[in-house]
Computed example of a mutant assay.
Amino acid sequence: MCRWLAYSGSPVRLDDLLYNPTNSLVMQSKHSKLGAETTNGDGFGVGWYGAGPTPGLFRSTEPAWHDRNLRELAAQASAGRVFAHIRATTGTAIQQTNCHPFRYGQWLWMHNGVLGDFLKVKRDLALAVDPSLYPLIEGSTDSEMFFYLALTFGLEEDPRAAVAEAVAYIEDTGLRHGVEHPVQMTVATTDGDTTWAFRYSSVGNARSLFISSDVATLQAQYPDHELLSGLSEDARLVVSEPLGDLYGAWQEVPEAACVVVHGGEQALYPFVPASPLPEAV
């Protein structure tokens, strides 16, 4: 379906995330090891927070491995919070407005997965989007619709609760239309200060998701590793699949879970659609 990464920490050059690791996101666009498809060549996008009032976006319908502009940008630009996504379409058009991340004000959103039988439920989901938000939907993907449902349910106030309500609404709608498994997802969203990442599936077998281990520990294990040596201790990566094979560098996020990353702190919560929110585990 897709692959993505969410980075936060000391500023890094984009090519240190997108090109230089042994299993970089650009490598995954051709040779994904854990994805539903090996190739994710239906466009890509990068979102980052810089000097402007809103995050920057660069999106293209080119395959990530083929885009010379991405190579040029990645070699020069650096940022302390980056969202990057490579796309494998589940049926909607290959166009820039369908490439992730999606942006609303300070917020970015990206999704790997599918809303089951989207065409069956699309109208009902669209009608549930707040009328003030609906005109801002530019593309035709289930992922962007999901984002605007989460915004409708209060993403800006309480992301965990909003995504839980949105998933519950999508599942209820899907079941009413005879969709057996309405939601398959890993989702990442950020306001530029905190990152929330979710792993969930209606069938109980969500796409892969990992978070990087504590940087100080990794720096002690691998003192000569060039990329690790330049990272701050609060640096964290949440990824669809590991960017490399350093032992101990990656922890799998469990099924039906939400990871919250703020600075160097991270918390893991169970994720249950539209139920009272549990405490961290």
Rank of each mutant, 00 (worst) to 15 (best):
A88V: 11
P254C: 08
V12S: 08
I86N: 00
Q184A: 06
S208F: 05
L57G: 09
S208W: 04
L14E: 07
D67G: 11
V167E: 03
A274Q: 09
L149I: 12
S24T: 13
D234P: 01
V167Q: 02
G80R: 02
T61L: 14
T194R: 00
W107Q: 12
T22C: 14
T38R: 15
S10A: 15
S208Q: 05
S78F: 05
E144N: 11
Q266P: 01
E226S: 08
A188N: 02
G116T: 14
T217C: 05
R81V: 07
Y269G: 08
L127T: 13
L136V: 02
G230I: 03
E279F: 12
A267Q: 06
L218G: 04
A162P: 00
G9V: 11
T173Q: 02
R236Y: 07
R81H: 07
T152D: 04
R71G: 06
V163S: 04
A220T: 11
Q221L: 09
V238F: 07
A6E: 06
L5E: 01
W65P: 02
T61V: 15
P55A: 07
V215K: 05
L70V: 13
D172L: 08
A267G: 00
A274C: 14
D42R: 14
V260W: 01
V259C: 07
F44H: 12
S24C: 14
T38F: 13
P159V: 10
L231W: 06
V239M: 02
Q219W: 03
H111E: 09
A216L: 11
V203N: 03
Q184S: 05
S29I: 14
T190F: 02
L70P: 01
V114N: 09
L133P: 10
Y269V: 13
V129Y: 09
Q96T: 15
A126G: 12
P55V: 14
R199G: 07
V129P: 03
G192N: 01
H177N: 01
P278M: 14
E180A: 06
P270M: 13
D15P: 08
Y49F: 15
N23H: 15
F58K: 04
L175G: 01
D191M: 07
E165F: 00
G43F: 12
V12C: 11
L175H: 09
A168S: 11
E279G: 12
L151K: 02
C258M: 11
N23V: 15
P63A: 15
S275G: 13
V26Q: 01
G178W: 00
G50E: 10
L268E: 05
H85S: 06
L228H: 02
Q266T: 12
H177G: 00
K30F: 13
N112H: 12
G113M: 14
E180S: 04
I94R: 13
Q95D: 10
G105Q: 09
T39Q: 15
G192V: 05
A64F: 03
A36K: 15
A280H: 05
L34D: 07
D130T: 10
A257F: 12
E157N: 08
V187D: 01
V163T: 05
V239S: 00
H225F: 09
W196G: 00
V281G: 02
Y200R: 01
V239T: 06
N20T: 15
A188L: 07
L228A: 00
G80W: 04
A168Q: 09
L125Y: 13
L57H: 07
A206K: 00
V253H: 01
